[in-house]
């Protein structure tokens, strides 16, 4: 009975049952499982994300959208994150201007381009990415916890029994709301971060706000980078968090697992997307 291959590819039981005659063989097998298991796991998870993403897009194209739920999710994802985003990004603005200011003082002594360059780096990198990491933290856990507890209380099964696909009911509204709200939050983040930086420059380094507010460095390409990053993160976080929530199994401990897994999955997704989009923008800009 136990010799039957199971549907789960990650079953180390067969290797464990091997008699431990060859120590080297056991070592090699252990190593292969150690390397292979994470790869298989990552492969399965990525396929899961792609599948949920594909089904989400199909439902949206078919127009099967519950707009009431979308509005509610916009409130949950957007409005309830505003203060958190303003607070953290405000501090980030102060930190970045401090760091840049000290270096500029030390090396060139010229603080005039500080504001312009700060705004450019903010657009290219920090505003979208740090906002996304904050949203991954706040909303990623929220979505996974909510959907996860619906899985363990069998609400998701009840949906499927009534021909209501969980992706359409639970993920599509969060996907639309997440994408729209991410763009809005990044815009707010840029403004807050820049103003916080402006005051830091004024009080820390005596840089006149009129000198600091300088848009001459910012190009159309920078705006495009910022928007494409915001868009990518906004689409990815609900998909990743939603998939992690739907993969919950096993009681209230399972909900805890899904919630913590969701932060990690969402944050890593943001970092990887950041790398890919930054790399792409570098290739385009240096062409």
């Amino acid at each position: 009975m136990s010799a039957v291959a199971s549907s789960e590819p990650t079953t180390p039981t067969d290797a464990d049952e091997e008699p431990s005659t060859g120590g080297a063989r056991a070592l090699v097998e252990g190593l292969l499982f150690g390397v292979g298991d994470p790869i298989v796991y990552i492969g399965q998870t990525l396929r899961g994300f792609a599948d949920v993403f594909r089904r989400t897009l199909i439902f949206i194209l078919q127009g099967k959208i519950r707009w009431g739920e979308v509005v509610q999710q916009c409130h949950e994802i957007g409005n309830r994150s505003v203060i958190f985003i303003m607070f953290t990004l405000g501090f980030l603005g102060m930190i970045l201007v401090f760091q840049a200011g000290f270096q500029a003082q030390r090396i060139t002594g010229d603080l005039r381009p500080l504001g312009g360059l700060f705004l450019q780096v903010l657009l290219r990198e920090f505003a979208p990415t740090i906002t996304a990491l904050m949203i991954a933290t706040r909303v990623g856990t929220g979505i996974a916890a909510e959907i996860g507890s619906m899985v363990v209380t069998e609400q998701v099964d009840a949906m499927r029994m009534n021909a209501a696909p969980p992706v359409q009911y639970l993920i599509v509204p969060r996907f639309i709301a997440g994408t729209a709200m991410m763009i809005a939050l990044v815009a707010i983040a840029i403004v807050v971060c820049f103003i916080a930086g402006m005051f830091t420059a004024l009080y820390g380094f005596n840089v006149n706000p009129r000198t600091f507010v300088n848009f001459s460095f910012v190009t159309y390409a920078d705006l495009m980078i910022c928007m494409s990053k915001a868009l990518a993160y906004g689409m990815a976080i609900p998909i990743v968090a939603g998939h992690t929530g739907l993969a919950t199994h096993g009681g209230s401990a399972g909900v805890g697992w899904a919630t913590t897994q969701s932060v990690v999955n969402c944050s890593l997704t943001v970092v990887v997307l950041d790398f890919l989009l930054s790399g792409l923008s570098y290739v385009f800009l240096s062409m």
Binding site: R138, T141, T259
Partner: peptide, 29 residues
């Protein structure tokens, strides 16, 4: 219950993120 655990995790990571940025600001200064 389980809902409470989910909420606590959410609050915990949010508070940690805030603490990281606030501490970072003062340490940078």
């Amino acid at each position: 219950g389980a809902v409470g655990v989910g909420r606590a995790v959410n609050n915990s990571v949010v508070a940690s993120a805030i603490a990281i940025f606030v501490l970072d600001y003062f340490l940078t200064y």
